[in-house]
Each structure stands twice: as C-alpha cells, then as structure tokens.
C-alpha cells in the first residue's frame, strides 16, 4: 500500500518537474507580456506573479508601434504559398513512389528523404547567391521559392507512407470498376488520404514557421521580414529590448503553431517512424 502511494506521488512528482521545466519559460513570457514596466524592471520583484496590476501597454506597443502584424502576415503568406507548392509537388511524387515505381520507388523515396539531411546552414550560401541573381533579394518570394527545399523531401516521405497504408486492392478495384489509374487516384485514394494530407499541410506550415537562417540571409528590409527574424531584430532599438512586447509577440505567435502541431503530432510521428519500426 505504502509502495503504491509512494510510487504514485513519485510519479506525479517527477512528471510535475518535467512539466515545470518545459512550460516555465512560456509561463514567464505570459506574465511578462502583461506586466507593468515598473513591475517588470524592478529586479527585486517576483517575476512569476503580478506585483502590480497587469497592463496592456506592451500589447498596444506591439500592435501599433511595431511591424508585428506585418511580420505575422508575411509569415502567413509564405506559409500558405509554400504549403501549396509543397502539396503540388509532393502529392504526385509520393503517389508515384508509393504505388507505381515498384522496387526502385523505395530507393528513390529514401533518396528524396535524404536530401532533407542537407541542412540550410550549408545551402544558404549558394542559395543567397542564386536568390540575388534572380533578383529576389529582400523579397518574400525568395522564401516562397526556397522553403520547399526542406518541406518537400520530408512531406514526400510522409505522404508516401500515408499512401502506402491504403490497401492496394481498393485501387485495383477502382481500376476494374472503370477508372484509369489517375481516375482511381482522384476518386478513391485522394478522399481516403485527406487525414494524411491535412497532417502534411500542418507539418509543412510548422517547418515554415521555424525557419530562421534563410530568412535572415535573404531579407534585410524590415517590412518583408517573417516572424522569427522580425522579432529578434526589430524589437531591439539600439541596446534597448522592448521586453514586454518581445515576450508577448513571441508567445502569441507560438501558441497557434504549437496547438496545431500538438493536435497532429501522433500522425506525424507515425508517418516518420513507420519505415523504421516493424509493422
């Protein structure tokens, strides 16, 4: 009995430690964004609670005196455009690899996935040159053009595993019932793959929201910056950090992405590891 109580408290105890470690920075961000500057910048005040009543002054600053909304819209624009390109490129390729290409399909699929391992921190140098040669320097379109380099390989791999999970016989049945191969894809495979495709869309979007180095390298014009770059470069005037607005801006942009990602996490992980675990 005692062992049970101990093990249960032990369990919740250790779990709480992990939760605290993971979430505390975000909690601080939450408090900080609503704390009065006076409260915030008194080092003796407890940073974990409101010592003075909360305020919206930082949020007002963030939304009216900075280009935060622009940054958000820029990221959204790039996100949607890149997701669209990714889907257009990856869905046919994944279908081809999963179904048609047979044995060398497996190899090519792995090959495409491996290109994900070529990191942006290596490619950014030649790519920045290519971007300026194409005249896309300082434009969001440079990101729209280049971001698929890391979304497409991964998403093709994910989609491949989703397509493979649909029994081949259903597709064959559709072909016998009168569809061409593409017809079977449109009428039967695609509707059944919608959960997988939505997962890929969400995942691609999170990849875009995370990107830093390309945006930093390609874009200098503040009106064209995305959220990660914008917050870290524009909310610092000289040596002064606008902490309240900075924390608020970071938290506000993080939460929607985090929520989406968490909801689809299981599917993403299963798509990722399906090749390495015995089924």
């Amino acid at each position: 009995m005692l062992k049970k109580i101990l093990s249960r408290t032990g369990f919740y105890g250790i779990l709480s430690v992990f939760i605290l470690l993971s979430a505390t920075p975000f909690y601080i961000m939450l408090i900080t964004m609503f704390k009065r500057s006076h409260d915030l910048f008194s080092p003796d005040n407890n940073p974990f609670i409101f010592n003075e009543p909360p305020t919206l002054e930082h949020m007002r600053l963030l939304f009216t005196q900075t280009q935060y909304t622009t940054f958000l819209l820029n990221t959204l624009f790039v996100g949607l455009a890149v997701v669209a390109i990714t889907i257009i490129l990856a869905v046919p390729a994944a279908f081809s690899l999963a179904r048609i290409a047979g044995r060398w399909g497996e190899g090519l699929g792995i090959g495409i996935f491996l290109t994900y391992l070529v990191p942006p921190t290596l490619l950014f140098i030649p790519l920045s040159r290519i971007v300026s040669l194409l005249g896309l320097q300082n434009s969001l379109w440079s990101l729209v053009l280049i971001y698929p380099t890391f979304t497409v390989p991964f998403c093709t791999w994910l989609l491949m595993s989703f397509f493979k999970s649909i029994p081949k016989e259903i597709e064959e049945q559709a072909m016998i019932d009168g569809c061409s191969r593409l017809g079977a894809f449109n009428r039967v495979i695609l509707p059944l793959s919608i959960p997988g495709i939505v997962t890929v869309i969400v995942f691609a979007f999170t990849l875009v929201a995370n990107e830093y180095i390309y945006a930093l390298a390609f874009i200098q014009d503040s009106a064209q910056k995305t959220i990660g770059i914008g917050l870290t470069t524009e909310l610092v005037r000289g040596d002064v950090f606008y902490w309240g607005a900075l924390m608020g801006g970071a938290l506000l942009a993080s939460i929607p992405v985090a929520l989406l990602y968490t909801v689809f996490l299981d599917r993403i992980i299963s798509g990722l590891t399906v090749g390495t675990m015995k089924h």
Binding site: F18, I19, S22, A23, P25, F26, I28, M29, T32, T206, A209, N210, Y212, I227, G228, I229, L231, T232, F241, W243, L246, M247, A250, L251, A253, S254, I255, V257, A258, L259, Y261, T262, L265
Partner: peptide, 20 residues
C-alpha cells in the same frame, strides 16, 4: 501539450523566451 511546447513552438520564438 505543455510538455511538447518547447518543440512545437517555433525555435526562434522559444529561444526568445530564454533571452529574458
């Protein structure tokens, strides 16, 4: 959700929290 936050929040934004 809470435990996943460090990974699901975009990398630059989470790191900004640590700046403070």
């Amino acid at each position: 959700f809470l435990i996943m936050l460090p990974w699901t929040a975009p990398i630059a934004l989470g790191t900004i929290g640590f700046l403070w």
